[in-house]
């Protein structure tokens, strides 16, 4: 498999109020971004359990994006700060597990930032593409594509 044909699979956990709306805006505004990301809506980035991220990697994701409101803008006042705290611990653990910390990214995207969402997804996709596939499936299988 060459790097050129590797298409990473990304999972995005987006908060309902800012990032998901921002992604929606990117969609309604017909902004084109990498189709590699698969989005899961949560009410708040604070809802993102570290287990979700691990689960995603286990199920074959090459990268995970957690996205919430900008600091101070959280619909639930401080859920994004909780997400930040968890993220800091999580990336340390990921490294211990042998997963590059670059594979998990936390980004703030507001509801009006469709263009920013587009840019972040494109950047993140490129980054993971450079890192290559994770091959972390516990059943030993790989998701290499023909």
């Amino acid at each position: 498999m060459s790097n050129g044909s590797f298409e990473p699979r990304l999972v995005g956990f987006l908060c309902n109020w800012c990032s998901y709306t921002g992604a929606d805006l990117a969609g309604t505004a017909r902004m084109v971004y990498a189709p590699n990301i698969r989005i899961i809506r949560v009410m708040c980035s604070g809802r993102v359990d570290s287990q979700f991220v691990l689960k995603a990697f286990r199920e074959g994701a090459d990268g995970v994006l957690i996205s919430g409101c900008h600091p101070g803008d959280c619909h639930y006042q401080e859920g994004n700060y909780k997400a930040l705290r968890r993220y800091k611990l999580l990336v340390r653990m990921l490294e211990q597990l042998g997963i590059e910390k670059e594979r998990c990214r936390l980004a703030w995207v507001s509801a009006s930032e469709g263009a920013r969402f587009q840019q972040i997804v494109n950047e993140f996709t490129d980054q993971i593409r450079r890192l290559g596939p994770l091959n972390f499936r516990f059943d030993g299988g790989s998701h290499e594509q023909a």
Binding site: V42, M43, C44, G46, R47, V48, D49, S50, H75, Y76, G79, K82, R86
Partner: peptide
């Protein structure tokens, strides 16, 4: 208000968010 922050933090999985 249903943010789910408590659910993500619950160590025993007792807290759950409806629909999430």
């Amino acid at each position: 208000k249903g943010c789910g922050t408590c659910v993500a933090a619950c160590p025993s999985g007792a807290a759950q968010q409806r629909h999430f």
